[in-house]
Each structure stands twice: as C-alpha cells, then as structure tokens.
C-alpha cells in the first residue's frame, strides 16, 4: 500500500501515534546523539558541532583516574555492592515466595502479602530517614542496647556498616514486592500435580523440590539474567542518600560519581564516557550470562 493511501486510511491512528512517538524520539532517541560528546571536549556554549574531537582521551582518563578518584576504587565499590546484592538479596524473594506458597489459608496469606508489599511504596528519602532515626544516637537500636547493658553504636558513622546496611535496606524494601512475579508463576501450577504427588506418597519437601521449584526455575533464570543487565546500576537514590563524609571511600560508585562529575561539576564529556563504559560492562554481563544459561540448557531471555 502506498504511503499516501495508508496515511489517509489510518489518519486517526497516526494522530494517536504522534504523542507517543514524539516522547520516544525526544527523550530516548535524541539523547543518544549526545553520546558523541564522550569523544569530544564538549562545551555547552560551542555545542556538539563546535567542540573539539579528542578521540578516546576521555576513556583513557577513566583508567588513569583523577585527583578525586581511582578507577579501581570506583570499580570495586560498584562490583562489591552488586555482588552483595546478588548473593544476599536475590534469593530472598524466591524463598519468601516459596514460603508464602506453602501458606494454604487464603485470608492469612493475603494479610501477610499486604504487609510485605508495603515497604515497596516508601520513597528512599523516607526509608533512609527511617534508618537514621532507628540507628541514631537516641534511636531504637541504641535504646535496645542500653537496656541490654551494652555499649551504644553509631553504624551510620562507621564505614564498616555501609555495605551491610545497603543490602538490609534493599531486602526490607523490595523482597516482599519481588515475590509477586514468582507467585504469579506458581499460581500457574496445576493443583492436580500436587494431588497426584500426595497419592504417590510424596511429602511436602518432595512436592517442593519436584513440582514447585521447577515451576519457577525459568522465572528465576530470566530474572537473574535481567539483573545482570542492571548489575552496575547500584540504585543511585539509595546510595546517594546513604553516603556521607565518613563512608565516602566505600559509597562512591559509578552512578554517584557520574552525577558528581557530570551534573555538579559539568564535566559532561568525561561523565558521558564513564556512562558508556558502564553500559558496555552491563551489556557484556547480560550477553555472557545468557550464553551460560543457554549452554547449560536453559532458555535465557533471547
């Protein structure tokens, strides 16, 4: 069908398309043009066309480091937090979903669900504020320690506590909400399978291992691969809000550093290069995890 005839026939549909397409072109496609400034010494006053091309100099600077950061510190901070989250956070929603699935009384299950979903709706400002109140010098934790006759602690001022706190907060906020996708997969399991298993004499553990777990294995793998894609996104808001002068050496990650350099100091070219570098690592991680999943006979995401 020629273009003009298609335009006439579907004119209202194309009019409906305009706002959505405009959104994607302006906020998703147009920014991609700005990626070239990673190879420039970009100044807003001269623009992309008037700025000097510097090749890979900005990328070289990433590895060389600057006065305020060393590449390895940034890289290891990001990586360690990501690995912590993967080890300590990732399994929690799975375990929680399996437990919830074992709760057979519907009303009770619903009540528990509505409580574990709740923290998801709190903002990071509020949540970190809560943590400050809890762990502050007169907070609940110290009240408790005083009662138990133990010395008070100040975890927020102690860099040692930074990483554990990040993981604990993430678990508290998102673990409950994270069960939804697993529960959806579990709701698709045919009840008859369990009945047949009971007839065959399988106990609850055997049912769990042979029926329930296989039902969510695909979901677990998909979520794992997707998580690898956002492996380097350590959650800007949480980290930024939790960072203070005491834990700076541990809390500086890619996202916070890009913010610091790009938005606060207006080093646009260097911070864009840093962003590209981060995306490349993420891409490599997704592709290789997906490959590994395929190699061991799983479906993967693509």
């Amino acid at each position: 069908m020629p273009l003009s005839r298609a335009l006439v026939r579907y004119r209202w549909l194309y009019i409906m398309l305009i706002p959505m397409l405009a959104y994607y072109l302006i906020f998703k496609v147009y920014p991609a043009a700005y990626l070239v400034i990673a190879f420039q010494d970009y100044w807003p006053t001269t623009g992309i066309t008037g700025s000097k091309w510097v090749g890979l100099a900005n990328f070289a600077k990433i590895f060389k480091g600057t006065a305020t950061f060393s590449f390895w510190q940034l890289f290891s901070n990001t990586l360690i937090l990501a690995v912590y989250n993967l080890i300590f956070y990732f399994p929690v929603p799975i375990i929680l979903a399996l437990l919830l699935n074992e709760v057979k009384r519907l009303g009770y299950k619903k009540a528990v669900q509505s409580m574990v979903y709740l923290p998801h709706f709190l903002s990071w400002s509020v949540l970190v504020g809560l943590v400050y109140v809890f762990l502050g010098s007169t907070g609940l934790v110290n009240k408790f320690l005083t009662q138990a006759g133990r010395p008070n602690i100040a975890p927020l001022m102690d860099p040692q506590w930074f990483r554990p706190l990040i993981v604990i907060e993430a678990i508290w906020k998102e673990a409950g909400w994270g069960t939804i996708i697993y529960l959806a997969a579990l709701s698709g399991v045919d009840e008859q399978l369990y009945e047949a298993a009971v007839v065959d004499g399988a106990n609850r553990w055997k049912q769990l291992w042979h029926i329930t777990f296989p039902a969510i294995r695909g979901t677990i793998i998909t979520l794992f691969i997707l998580r690898m894609g956002s492996f380097m996104d350590t959650g800007f808001e949480q980290i930024y809000l939790m960072s203070n002068s005491k834990n700076r050496t541990l809390s500086q990650v890619f996202d916070t550093y890009i913010y610091e350099e790009g938005i606060r100091k207006a080093h646009y070219s260097f911070s864009t290069a840093l962003g590209i570098f981060k995306s490349i690592i993420s891409l490599i991680l997704v592709i290789s995890t997906n490959k590994i999943a395929n190699l061991v006979g799983e479906e993967g995401v693509y």
Binding site: I26, K28, V29, Y30, P31, L35, I263, T272, K278
Partner: peptide, 18 residues
C-alpha cells in the same frame, strides 16, 4: 524502536542535557 529503548539508553548525562 520502543523495545530497543528499554535496553539501551544514553545514560544520565545525555538525558540531563536533553
């Protein structure tokens, strides 16, 4: 196009400049 933008984005600074 929409699906591509789900997985690839310009990142923080290009978004900010836009």
């Amino acid at each position: 196009l929409i699906l591509i933008t789900m997985y690839f984005s310009g990142g923080m600074i290009p978004f900010f400049l836009t």
